[in-house]
Amino acid sequence: MRWRLFQQKPIRVSRAFTIAVFTTLSAITGFSCSKNKDVLVTEIGVTSPNPRPAKTSKAGEFYIQGQNQHVKGDLQTAIASYNQAISLNPQYGEAYNSRGLAYFDLGDKKRAIADYDQALSINHNNAEAYNNRGNARASLGDNKAAIEDYNEAIRLAPNYAEAYNNRGNAHAANKDQKAALNDYDQAIRLDQKYVIAYNNRGNARAANGDPQGAIADYNQAIRLNSNFAPAYNNRGNARAANGDKPGALKDLQKAAAIFKKQGNNDLYQQVMNNIQELQ
């Protein structure tokens, strides 16, 4: 996904960027910003699997242990626990899927995909594994394969809001804003409190030349989560595109303050650079 420059008339912000948010069933979220200036920021964070019933087997105990370590951000230790679970039960599809999530959060997308492949070889109807593999493929730039995975996840789980949102991101990356909007609409119909989907639909509307519609979506994202920095940043860009310099500055300053508080220095600095240029 690429940085999007807004068409700005009375106000010019030459390095304005939008933040699209890409989820993989996150429990603890964070932001990763590529050093490549052509890459749009995506949310990957510490991604824990869905809670599962406690298992009585020894393999199940290692699996639950890995989940708890993952949520705490101790990824290497979580992987070691998943390894133990898999060594005791080589057909433990959930452990492969969860280990894939841990590898994804470590940035090792190829190992993540290998684990999702294994999970799917054990259970062809694992919608979560398809969604997660789609996320990994999208993060590597293979949006076509990602969309195929999201399609399969949605076929297996028609009410899977996150898969619609993620497929929307892949369509947006392919410059198919109409398909992206349709997917974000469906994600929001399924979950009317889906902050990330509102933010991403706002981005698609802005890219489609609808800054007012974009602002409405960012407003809703902020109403649902007043500390969601990407929506403030993106609303600031949309307001700048509309010539509302005071409103744009206020939003960008709010985004910068949240990113600073979160310790996200990369995004904080990028927003501060935009503020300086806008001033």
Rank of each mutant, 00 (worst) to 15 (best):
N36Y: 02
T18G: 03
L40I: 08
G243W: 00
L190A: 05
N123F: 10
D74A: 13
D217A: 03
K58E: 15
Q212H: 13
Y103A: 01
I215E: 11
F6S: 04
A153M: 08
Q7A: 09
I64P: 00
T77N: 07
V13F: 02
G247I: 05
S98D: 01
R167Q: 08
A214E: 00
M1P: 08
N225I: 06
L101K: 05
E162P: 07
Y232V: 12
Y232F: 14
E43H: 11
A172P: 01
S26A: 14
H70W: 08
N50M: 11
N274S: 12
G168Y: 02
N143R: 14
L252H: 14
R235D: 03
K178L: 00
A146F: 08
A204C: 09
K261F: 00
L5C: 00
K35V: 02
A78S: 10
Q177R: 07
K9G: 03
R155Y: 06
G247Q: 05
K175T: 04
K37S: 11
G107V: 01
S98P: 00
V271C: 06
Y184V: 10
A214P: 06
Y184E: 10
F22W: 06
A207E: 13
T47I: 09
N225R: 12
V39S: 06
N169I: 01
F31L: 13
Q270P: 02
L101Y: 04
G202Y: 02
D105F: 05
D115R: 12
E152S: 04
P53L: 12
Q186L: 06
A16C: 03
